[in-house]
Amino acid sequence: MEINTGAQKEDVKERVKLIISRVTKIPTSAIAGEKLIRDDLGVDSMQSIETLAILEKELNIIIDPEKAFDVATINDLLNLVETSMNSSRGEGTK
């Protein structure tokens, strides 16, 4: 999947929000980019791990767990997913 166009980025963003909503039961409308995942949305560490694991499985990517520690906002998470998608794609074509 190429994710460099705006429309495709939007598609990934929507999927990420849907998965967060599925894990946490928070409405997707409340999951805005600048929100702090833990402090604003109240997502606990177990829910974060579960979300990341589902993202890996459903988007067929590998997320670096060390980088996942640095994720604070929804935008950070979207950037991490995007980077992971590009790097997983790169590894797949080696």
Binding site: I49, E56, P65
Partner: peptide
């Protein structure tokens, strides 16, 4: 086992 699932 790599990535977040591997970590878990």
């Amino acid at each position: 086992f790599s990535g977040v699932r591997g970590k878990v």
